[in-house]
Structures are given as C-alpha cells and as structure tokens.
C-alpha cells in the first residue's frame, strides 16, 4: 500500500512540474558572412575570375558576384553590407599584385556600390557584386583582389578573426586582360609543352576555347591527344605562312619558339 501511495505521489509531482515555455525571438546583433559552398571550413570560401582578353574591346567593365549568408537571424529590413580589400599573405594564392580601387575595381564606399552592397529583407542568402574595371595595366599583368566582410552600421561580420590570424576566411577575385597560365596547366598532362601567352593565344584562336582552368578541367586524355594533334598541325601551317611572308616562326616574347611537344 505504501509503495502504491508513493508511486502515485511521484507521478503527481512529475506531471505538475511540466510547464510550457514561450520561445522568444533573437534579439542580439545581426551578422553576415560569405557563404561557404563546400562546408569544409576552408579559408578561401569563394573565388571568381575575369579575363577581359576574351571579351570585345568595347567591354570595359565586368561584374562578379559573391554569395553571402545571414547569420543568427533573418534580416527584418534591407541591411547594408560592408566589404574591404586587404593584402593577404597566404602563400597558396596566385602570385599577383593587388588590385587598386578606382583603377581595377569600383571602390566599395562609392555611391555606385551603395545600392548593391545589401543583404535584403527576409533573405537568408543574397549576393553582392564586385565591379571590375578594364584598366590598361591589366594587359601587362593580372591582379588579385582579396576581400573580407567588415562591420557596417547594420551588420556585424560573422568572422571576427584578425587578418593575421591564419584561420580567417576570405574571397578572392582574379582579373586580367592578357593570357595567364591556368593554375592546372602544369598538372593536367596536356602534352602541349611549356606554357606561354603567345602559345595560349594561338590555342584560343585555333580552337575557339578559352583554355582556362574551367575548360582544361573538362578534358579527358583522348581530348588532349586530339588537341595536341590539332595544334601541332596548325602550328606547322602557321609557320609556313609566316615564312612565306618573310616572318620568323611564331615565338614568345622572350624569343623562344612556340612548340607543342
């Protein structure tokens, strides 16, 4: 009987202790960060590249977009996003000079950019642009632009690490108006020999393909064999044509012959 009584008593106590708690909305600061598409917590979250060399001369601007993500809460209004460029010392980035505001890209604090650097109301994800400018200096060499999100009047940057902290995250833009060696040229076993900008241009003209990272990554071994054949034959014809015009063989700027071997 006693056992029965205590069992009933404990049950009453347990049932009486449950109560419904009301969930309150987040009331802290809103945050924003660059979206990490791979979810691997890499430092370079996104990258973009633009090469004006593939575009008509009349095109003097190009825009690349980076995806951003709201953190902690969905914005109840349009929030201004602030980004900044900085010099990133990480060694695996392509060894290019930094891009300069107003010369290679529209400055982020300009009036023009004000309406674009926005995380819109109700959006978990959004995109912000970087407007690149076709400066003549890009014909000589490429530039890079490394970016981080910083605090604005509306939003805090979700990545609070300092620039010199090796774990900080960023995005990067590569820009040029000349042929640059694709990052995967050397390790793709293309069978096309040493890279050179004149060779690159010749290949683009002969094939109608960009021969950039993206294109090279689509090739299998038989595609590469085909292109090796194609370019070898085309180069012989080109040099024959040049000889008939009294011109030397096709060469790089440093005087070495263009060869596909």
């Amino acid at each position: 009987m006693k056992k029965f009584f205590y069992t009933i008593m404990y049950a009453v106590i347990v049932l009486a202790s449950c109560e419904q708690v009301e969930l309150k909305p987040y009331e802290g600061d809103p945050y924003v960060g660059f979206y990490d598409p791979r979810g691997f917590y890499m430092k370079q979250l996104q990258s973009a590249e633009t090469n004006f060399v593939y575009m008509d001369e009349s095109i003097v601007r190009d825009t690349v977009w980076f995806k951003i993500v709201a953190k902690a809460s969905i914005p109840p209004a349009d929030y201004h996003v602030k980004i900044r460029a900085y010099k990133n010392e990480i060694s695996y980035l392509t060894n290019l000079k930094e891009a300069e505001p107003g010369i290679h890209y529209v400055p982020f604090d300009s009036k023009e950019m004000e309406d674009f650097l926005i995380l819109k109301k109700g959006h978990l994800y959004d995109s912000i642009p970087v407007i690149l400018l076709r400066d003549p200096s890009l014909k000589e060499e490429g530039r890079r632009l490394t970016l981080r999100i910083t605090d604005s009047e509306d939003l805090k940057a979700s990545d609070r690490l300092a620039d010199d902290d090796q774990s900080h995250t960023f995005v990067v833009v590569y820009m040029a108006d000349c042929f640059l060696e694709p990052a995967n040229w050397k390790y793709s076993s293309l069978g096309l020999g040493k890279y050179g900008p004149v060779k690159h241009q010749f290949m683009v003209e002969q094939s109608g393909e960009r021969w950039d990272n993206n294109f090279i990554s689509t090739l299998d071994r038989y595609d590469k064999t085909y292109y090796a054949f194609k370019f070898r034959n085309a180069l012989v014809l080109e040099n024959q044509k040049r000889a008939a015009q009294g011109l030397p063989k096709l060469k790089e700027k440093d005087g070495t012959d263009v060869e596909f071997s």
Partner: peptide
C-alpha cells in the same frame, strides 16, 4: 578513342 584524329601532317 571514339573518332579519328586530324590527318598526320
């Protein structure tokens, strides 16, 4: 392969 290459030069 799936096709013939351009002619041997």
């Amino acid at each position: 392969m799936q096709a013939f290459l351009p002619a041997v030069f």
